[in-house]
Computed example of a mutant assay.
Amino acid sequence: MNAATGHLDRPGSIPATLFLAADVGGTYARVGLVQVSKDDGHQVELLAYRKLACADFPGLAELLQSFVASDVRTTVRHCVLACAGQLVGDEVLNDNSAWPIHLAQVRKAMALDEVAFLNDLEALGYALDDGSAQGTRRLCGPDIRPDGSILVIGPGTGLGAAVRWPGTSGGRVLTTEAGQMDYAPHSVREREVLAHLAPNGGYVAYERIVSGPGLLALYAVLCTLRGETPRLGTPEAVTAAASACSDAQAVEAVEIFCASLGSFTGSLAMAFVTVGSVYLAGGFLYSMFALLERSAFEERFLHGRSVRALLSRVPVWVTEHGRKGVLGAARWYLRRGVPGVARYASAAG
């Protein structure tokens, strides 16, 4: 281990056939016990899996310990974590995390030899390399899966994005913090919302609008602008009311959310010249698929002028989150010998 960089000095194969893989979001953590396939040493098998609410545990180590106590009947000394945010030193920086995450603390509390880290959307990028259609629905664009770069976007507790370029051994995934880019309003109403969120001007990130909490914030702002008191308290309640057309502010909030997601997605597809597919990932989006279908998402995604011809060739899919993040993290860990990709907490802590 190189103490200065935290990277593995001699990348190679996983030193154990069993390891933990966790996909840790702001609300839920999905944890699996993974085994390197006995039939194919390049594949992974999920032996146990649980979805746990982060709020039920005082920290990540306690959450992982609970999974080990209930589902793991053998010693596991290696773990890979897919978390929203980026690793700076030993700490995962993320405004939406349920608790501070320090890799050395997790390693010590779990008595692990090694803890590896990658971004959660990066893990999803590696999970989509098999082209599986399970839990995936086409939102717009042609009903094909063209070869080429793939864009993965995940609105949840926050907003993440990653890009996967094809290549040997599953290609390469680039993580981003695109959700932290400045929100760009498109309509007069969106400018009113932005002015309410930042009455003195300044920075408003896309994830303040395009996320679960963002949808709820949109609803509250629209109620305020109409002089009404918000009566819905969760993003799920807002989407349910919008589906039933039982609350005008909920309907408008979902319309702005979907349209803004379309603009954000189209802008990233242009920035990275996405010629493969776009995947919108997460159970939150999957549950509101019908609302997305009849929204302005596609029109805003396509933008205008000459770029419309490019983006109209790109299929956009909505895919369930499920176990994809855990499997993607495990696949990345298995392939971690790619130079410049692996990031680790050393055994010295």
Score class of each variant (00 low, 15 high):
Gly322Glu: 05
Gln43Trp: 08
Ala184Gly: 02
Ala240Ile: 11
Gly171Thr: 13
Val44His: 02
Ile144Asp: 09
Ala329Lys: 01
Gly282Ile: 03
Asp95Leu: 14
Leu124Asp: 02
Tyr203Val: 13
Leu310Met: 12
Pro185His: 06
Arg77Asp: 08
Glu190Arg: 09
Phe19Met: 07
Val173Gly: 02
Val188Tyr: 10
Tyr203Pro: 02
Glu192Leu: 14
Ala133Asp: 12
Asn94Ala: 14
Ala269Ile: 12
Val188Trp: 10
Leu33Gln: 04
Gln134Ala: 14
Tyr126Trp: 13
Gln105His: 11
Gly25Tyr: 04
Cys245Met: 14
Leu222His: 04
Leu60Val: 12
Ala296Tyr: 08
Glu177Tyr: 03
Thr229Asn: 07
Gly160Ser: 04
Tyr49Glu: 00
Val251Arg: 10
Pro155Gly: 03
Val163Ser: 02
Ile14Ser: 05
Leu64Val: 15
Cys258Leu: 11
Gly131Lys: 10
Gly227Thr: 10
Arg145Tyr: 05
Ala329Tyr: 02
Ala53Asn: 08
Ala29Pro: 01
Ala116Val: 15
Val76Ser: 03
Thr17Leu: 10
Arg191His: 13
Val152Asn: 07
Tyr219Ile: 06
Tyr333Leu: 09
Gly282Lys: 04
Leu310Ser: 09
Lys38His: 11
Leu268Thr: 09
Ser187Lys: 07
Arg331Gly: 01
Asp56Trp: 02
Leu216Met: 05
Thr27Cys: 00
Thr75Asn: 06
Val36Leu: 09
Tyr126Pro: 01
Thr168Lys: 12
Arg305Thr: 14
Ser287Ile: 11
Asp40Glu: 12
Ala61Ser: 14
Gln43Asp: 13
Thr136Gly: 00
Ala162Ile: 08
Leu268Tyr: 06
Phe19Leu: 09
Met181Arg: 14
Ala84Leu: 03
Ser243Thr: 15
Glu122Gln: 13
Thr319Glu: 05
Asp39Met: 08
Leu112Trp: 05
Val24Tyr: 01
Arg172Asp: 10
Arg138His: 03
Asp182Ile: 12
Arg191Tyr: 09
Thr75Leu: 10
Tyr183Gln: 02
Asp40Cys: 10
Phe19Lys: 06
Lys324Trp: 12
Val44Ser: 02
Arg313Glu: 13
Arg10Thr: 15
Ala330Phe: 01
Asp143His: 10
Asp143Ala: 15
Val221Trp: 06
Gln65Pro: 00
Ala16Pro: 01
Ser66Pro: 00
Arg331Phe: 03
Thr75Ile: 14
